[in-house]
Design a protein around this nucleic acid. Structure first.
Length: 337
DNA sequence: CTTCTTCTCGGTGACTGCGC
DNA sequence: GCGCAGTCACCGAGAAGAAG
């Protein structure tokens, strides 16, 4: 009986080396492009590998390089996190950069002072680097990562120049949006903004305040609501603003804005006829609102891609930018006309 | 049975050596 | 001396084997 030729299964560099009559180091060099290798040998190996549909064993590569090929992304453990499009879209961007570099993404959460999950990730050497997605004014996670020595970057702005930062210039963006709305005839500009524990809220408020302080009437404290987090607090802020009277409400972010809109709707207040509304951050929450909402638009996916790529560059010892600032756009919509 | 040592996995990279 | 390919130690953790 004619013996059937058994198919050769290629599972490792050794198999390829044996088949081609080379050493596995030569095959490794041919595939990585590193080290000295003849062009002919390189082409021969690559052609064979393509035909055999060989995929390198990433666990073995990790072992040899003492790297995990994982990026850690730290999210805040907010109860309504799933409702925050920022983090979802940001993760998409990070995953895109990671995938393009043979990295995977490991997600963990921190609850302000409780950074035990992050510590486990670092201690157990599960990741090569970390991205902190929300920078706090007193950030325990950032302080810990600095001590640990693991490469990391933060999404946000800090005066601490040792931190690698990726962010939008929120202060300048909010300053420009506030100025623009004033130039459109609005005089009494109310603001509803979240916790001043979050660095981003500080920057946004600073942008608003910078413009308002330079006006003859200054900042009207009775229509300024900071550290507003809960739905109840936002509702009370809106009631206060309507009682005191304002031309426009500036919302600290998309979540606050959607709750402000909901409260105004419940009070039968029309936008923009009775009051104008704008948001310091746009998202899917506001995209389909009627009327459309004036807001600052940021390419969050691009933010994720840049954060991911910057961290990988830092891990790989390549040159990286210590502070990357992304552009923003002011999208003027019907809510402020 | 316990403890210690060696081997294993697949890939990397510094070093070595061959041939022209 | 240069260009190239081969050798070998190493990575980390668990399994297997050896010794007491």
């Amino acid at each position: 009986m004619k013996e059937e030729k058994s198919e050769i299964v290629i599972t490792s560099l050794d198999d390829i080396a044996r088949e081609l009559g080379l050493s596995k180091s030569t095959v490794s060099r041919a595939l990585s492009g590193k080290g000295r290798i003849g062009a002919q040998t390189k082409a021969r190996v690559r052609q064979y590998v393509k035909k055999a549909e060989y995929k390198p064993n990433l666990i073995a590569r990790s072992l040899a390089q003492s790297k995990t090929y994982n990026l850690g992304v730290v999210l805040p453990a907010d109860s309504d996190l799933a409702e925050k499009p920022f983090f979802q879209v940001f993760l998409l961007g990070v995953c895109e950069a990671a995938s393009a570099n043979d990295y995977d993404v490991v997600v963990t959460v921190v609850v302000e002072k409780d950074i035990s999950a992050l510590k486990n990730l670092v201690r157990n050497k599960k990741v090569d680097g970390i991205i902190l997605t929300r920078l706090l004014v007193h950030d325990y996670a950032a302080a810990y990562l600095k001590r640990s020595g693991i490469p990391f970057l933060v999404v946000g702005s800090s005066s601490d120049e040792s931190l690698v930062q990726v962010d939008t210039d929120h202060e300048s963006a909010c300053e420009n949006l506030t100025s623009l709305l004033l130039s459109m005839g609005n005089r009494r500009m109310a603001v509803v903004i979240g916790s001043d524990e979050h660095a981003v809220n500080i920057s946004r408020y600073r942008g608003y305040a910078k413009v308002m302080e330079n006006r003859p009437e200054g900042i009207c404290r009775e229509i300024v609501f900071q550290n507003v987090g809960s739905k109840t607090a936002i509702d009370k802020s809106v009631e206060g603003i309507m009682k005191e009277g304002a031309d426009c409400i500036l919302c600290g972010d998309d979540i606050i804005c959607s709750q402000v809109l909901s409260k105004l709707n419940a009070m039968n207040i029309r936008i923009p006829e009775d009051i104008r509304v704008a948001s310091f951050y746009d998202s899917a929450h506001l995209k389909y609102n009627n009327p459309p909402i004036t807001a600052l638009e940021i390419d969050v996916k691009e933010l994720g891609v840049i954060a991911g790529q910057s961290l990988i560059d830092k891990i790989s010892g390549k040159p990286f930018t210590r502070r990357t600032i992304l552009n923003y756009q002011i999208a003027l919509k019907k809510s402020t006309q």
